[in-house]
Design a protein around this nucleic acid. Sequence first.
RNA 1: GGGCGGUUAGCUCAGCUGGUUCAGAGCACCUGCCUUACAAGCAGGGGGUCACUGGUUCGAAUCCAGUACCGCCCACCA
Length: 883
Amino acid sequence: MKELAAKYSAAQVEDKWYAYWLDHKFFHSEPNEKQPYTIVIPPPNVTGILHMGHVLNNTLNDVLIRKARMDGKNACWVPGTDHASIATESKVVAKLKAMGINKEDIGREEFLRHAWEWKEEHGGIILQQLRKLGCSCDWDRTRFTMEPALSEAVINTFVYFYNKGWIYKGVRMVNWDPEALTAVSDDEVIHKDTKSHFYHLRYFISDGNGNPTDKFLIIATTRPETIMADAAICVNPKDERHFWLKGKKVLIPLINREIPVIEDDYVEMDFGTGCLKVTPAHDVHDYEIGLRHNLPVLEIIDDHGKLNEKAQILVGEDRFVARKKIVKMLEEAGNLVKVEDYTSPVGYSERTDAVIEPKLSAQWFLRMEDLAKTALETVESGRTKFTPEKYVNTYRHWMENARDWCISRQLWWGQRIPAYYLPDGSYVVEATPEAALKAAQAKNPALTMADLKQDEDVLDTWFSSWLWPISVFDPEKPGHPDHKPNKDLAYYYPTNDLVTGPDIIFFWVARMIMAGEEFMGREPFSNVYFTGIVRDKIGRKMSKTLGNSPNPLDLIEKYGADAVRIGMLLCSSAGNDIFYDEAQIQQGAAFCNKIWNSYRLVKGWEVDASEAQGASARLAVEWFAAKLSDTIAAVEDHYSKFRISDALMTIYKLFWDDYCSWYLEAIKPAYGKPIDPETKKATLEFFEALLKLIHPVMPFITEELWQDIAERKEGETIMYAPTPKAAAFSSAVLENFALAQEAVNGVRGVRSQRNIAPKEVMKLHIKGAGFPQEVIPVVEKLANAEVSVVDAFTSQGIGFMVRTIEMQVEMEGLINVEEELDKAQKELEHQEKFLAGVRAKLSNERFVNNAPAAVVEVERKKEADSLSKIESLKAKIEALKNN
RNA sequence: GGGCGGUUAGCUCAGCUGGUUCAGAGCACCUGCCUUACAAGCAGGGGGUCACUGGUUCGAAUCCAGUACCGCCCACCA
């Protein structure tokens, strides 16, 4: 590298080094004798594009992986994408729709052909974008959850759990979208408060023969069109008002079907009338009550949201039209008591905005009981640690109440459920059609392939991603606990850290733990680091519709990936949401520039071999060596606790404040003068250590400069330079330098107050022998002052204290005695108050007797220091008065 | 409604098992400087009854209880 530009320009640097890293396969990992450090990427949706959440997450991953690599571990970061069945399928559906093609019309096979085409064309863009961010993924290991081997793994696990008896077919209420004609997941249902009515209906008591008596009860409902599906009326068993109903039967209005009155705690006595109509087919809770009381299920609404013939009346009418009509009919029949306005939350489909209809349907379930129990133990025992810890509570609560997992989805894009139906309605579950045929023929030898019909549904995407930490290494293993892990799996599993958002703690994290325990017999990762959500400045979630989400690639282009990375991370502590502000990235860019220029300065110094190291430089080198070691220890501590932003801030301050503002200023040769070889060498060593420390978060600029500070051979990289280690140091060195810094600050304060230019040499008098003599050269250089140690101040000047040491900047004839007196008086008052406080404590016998000796000792020291300060202040005031 | 977590400077957050002058950091702000690496900079400075109330203790930002507000997860009352 020749002359360095005055400003750092990321664009020229980043692509160059990324290509270099790729060329040399620096990201690639193979099992070897070193300790592995493994991360599997939280696979982004294959059709996704990079957003700020990905930036945060993947930068964290990359920091961890690069740090581990420099720590000498065999670091492996496995990238890949998730087939994301719902998201991808709806994108393909939308694309086809735009072409005038209906999914149903072209059929499954043709649809999947389109979907794969789409995936090949648009899929994996996000992985390209991650390269721009600098992510050091082992691209040779890139995986896709729906690639053949991984799909096989999914099917095998299904068969495995089925054979174990944990997978069963059951009926469940799903969120049915009558417009899209599909079930949608709970996440795709938006609850909106909707104005409707509360209809109070009169149900007459039956005489036992299906005829009404003159007695009746009143129920309140928002859905009168479903009364034909009623299976019971339910009251709370403690409700005295309804004791008389016990054992009675009532008649459904209009159709006069007889239904029983039952009792269940679910009914709230003080809500509505205390009588609830139970409609198992069209309400989730009612369905559960129905299960408890063995009630029949009668479905009267079809897939299109219209009443069917089972309704007996209003057949073929849309549910909302039917509602209006039936109200009228009820009114005419004398069953309508009153109508109240009512606002209640109603579920709408995210995609079509249709009102969701709860619908019963046959689904496949995986029993959770044992899996959840084991997975809870994994976390409670600490084998997998959560950061921040608070999420253990959330996790526990969910695991203790885990409901069976509905694993079927009414979609085509995904792994198709390997259940094959026989003509007699029974089914077999096998990994392949061939095996299924064999199994079917065992039941009925006459069957042929053509007689078998595979289940139409595919598996929940999470049913494939929960295998991710295993299947990316050895797709044979899931579904086969006895299979001997291949070399990769044996080496890389369990992975070390997982970085992800808390929103998928159950969907993904918990289930990976389950799968890991089930198939590997141990946890899939040692640590889970939960990030927060990236929000905009005013706290809104970033979303496309709000348009408040910047495009990370634009930011990278504008500021550089390093700036984006450190900008995001400096202010993001684990578990807390991040309020994104472009100013953070600007701060990152400023830091890049600072690093760049600090090197520009050092690089520009000519070395004169005959030059001897000056006192100030010698001290500064000694001090910074200590400071560096001290800080490295602090940084390591932060990392070990996953306080990433603290670790980075610590390095940031070390670089900017300690190295640039103090150290470089202390060793800086006079303008145009050469530097001695010893100092230059030390400085470059320090600089290299700093580059290495910050490299995990700022990979590009550090590589650029690292390559320049010394002769490097082709194939050398900072990526594999070992993390600087803390060396032993004397704390006295730090302590003495700190005193020097305070003295310098004191002088600078006086300059600032009096508007004295930095160029002007000042005279600083230090009273007594308390100040470490050896650091005086540093003070002289940085304060641009001549320092003298005196017994008493003999000239006029402005005083200040460094701890208990009195100092004075000589200002003959330039000081305002009044002002100085005033200042000293105030300081005295403050000091006396402080002393009083300390003495009150010390005179408290209970404190002296109960507090640890060390604490009492500290108080005594405070007392002594304060006394000494008061004494000098008094003397100073005297002197000023006499002046 | 149930569970969990939070409330410290204008903003974002540290502050571990109560005691080190403990009230901190970064950013923002104010003042003065284009000082020959960097104005994406340098130097200096102001700013908080640690949400509120009570308790425990010699001593509380820190422990306990209650109150208020905020956030997240679950259920989302026919």
